[in-house]
């Protein structure tokens, strides 16, 4: 049974944090709530968990009205951005907390709790560290304790608020892969909040992009990346170069060159602004079709290089080209830049 969020609204004072958000998560789906800070993604997550009460709208799960249930009765696992581990309890005691809080017949025996805690610590690869206090663990380890603690209650939905926000880049990538594996193993409907588009695109089955408390676009990572519904989506998912263009016969004329318009673009004739990714340029030496420019700095950055170009109309333009090509170019050279593809809204 899916999780259905319908026309959710929430304001803080006069600030509209959520403005009529509707979203549906299928069983076992892995959804990323992506957006800049202040876009309402954490508020949405907290509404699902029950830590915030929306002003209007509904959240239903397995046919039940979640909003009528108390936080403690929802059985929704939440991993907090700063983990919120109980600082005076060991990792094992943290994980056991939810099991011990169960009431009446549901409460497992001490032996069962112990076994389950060991099992969960093994799942998050923290065997043998159960006796450590949170302050004795690294950021990544705390993160995993928080996840094990949330999983202990056998949640019906798993929510993660910026799960990798406080970790360094290498640990982030490791944990990302590992979180995906955990999701595949548990099959839990999982929703995570992030402001990192790379993280969202890599991890999620579907990405919901929020802007100012409203959904801008919901879709698979491919859909968002290749068929962005709005300029905001396109700009949020990567760097963008904006160039004036003229649409003629279903193609964009940029610097005299005909450039293919991508799916979803406007095709009606007239002036427009072409949105192009910085790595979607063909660079030719000397004068040929395309934007004429003088090359400034060539900055090598791993597999690709950044070219700082000065267009003849005086505008600065930064594009990315493969490292091999960059090696053949010299600062001060005359080049022609031709976009391979563009989007116009």
């Amino acid at each position: 049974m899916p999780l259905e969020i319908d026309h959710l609204r929430k304001t803080f004072g006069k600030f509209p944090a959520l403005n009529s958000v509707s979203l549906r998560a299928e069983d076992s789906e892995f959804i990323a709530l992506l957006g800049p800070s202040g876009s309402g993604k954490t508020t949405l997550l907290r509404c699902i968990a029950g830590l915030e009460l929306p002003d209007s709208g509904s959240i239903r799960f397995q046919g039940e009205n979640l909003l009528a249930q108390k936080v403690r009765d929802r059985r929704i696992g939440l991993v907090f951005q700063h983990y919120a581990l109980f600082r005076h309890m060991t990792a094992a005691q943290n994980v056991a907390f939810g099991l011990k809080a169960k009431r009446g017949k549901e409460k497992p025996s001490a032996a069962v709790i112990k076994a389950r805690v060991e099992e969960l610590l093994a799942l998050v690869q923290l065997e043998g560290l159960g006796g450590r206090y949170p302050s004795q663990l690294s950021g990544g380890q705390r993160q995993r304790v928080a996840l094990a603690r949330a999983l202990a209650i056998e949640p019906r939905i798993l929510l993660l608020d910026e799960p990798f926000g406080a970790l360094d880049a290498k640990v982030r990538r490791e944990l990302r892969r590992w979180l995906r594996q955990i999701h595949e193993r548990t099959g839990l409907t999982t929703i995570f909040v992030t402001h990192d588009q790379e993280e969202a695109l890599e991890l999620a089955d579907r990405v919901a992009l929020l802007k100012d408390g409203a959904l801008e676009q919901v879709g698979t990572p491919e859909e968002l990346y290749h068929q962005p519904a709005t300029p905001f989506v396109f700009e949020f998912l990567g760097d963008v170069v904006k160039l004036p263009c003229e649409i003629v016969d279903g193609a964009a004329l940029i610097g005299g060159a005909r450039v293919t318009l991508l799916g979803g673009s406007r095709r009606t004739a007239g002036a427009g602004v072409a949105h192009v990714r910085p790595d979607a340029f063909d660079v030719a030496r000397g004068e040929s079709e395309g934007l004429k420019a003088t090359l400034g700095d060539v900055v090598s950055a791993g597999a690709s290089a950044r070219l700082d170009c000065r267009l003849d109309n005086g505008d600065a333009l930064e594009i990315r080209v493969p490292h091999d090509l960059a090696q053949t170019l010299k600062p001060g050279e005359r080049v022609s830049l031709r976009p391979r593809e563009a989007r116009v809204w």
Binding site: G50, R72, R74, F86, A152
Partner: peptide, 21 residues
């Protein structure tokens, strides 16, 4: 209040949260 909120999501009632967290 994060720890209290975490306790609530883990199924703890207000008294349990107060005395244990």
């Amino acid at each position: 209040t994060d720890e209290e909120a975490a306790a609530a999501t883990l199924g703890a009632g207000p008294w349990r949260t107060f005395f244990l967290v």
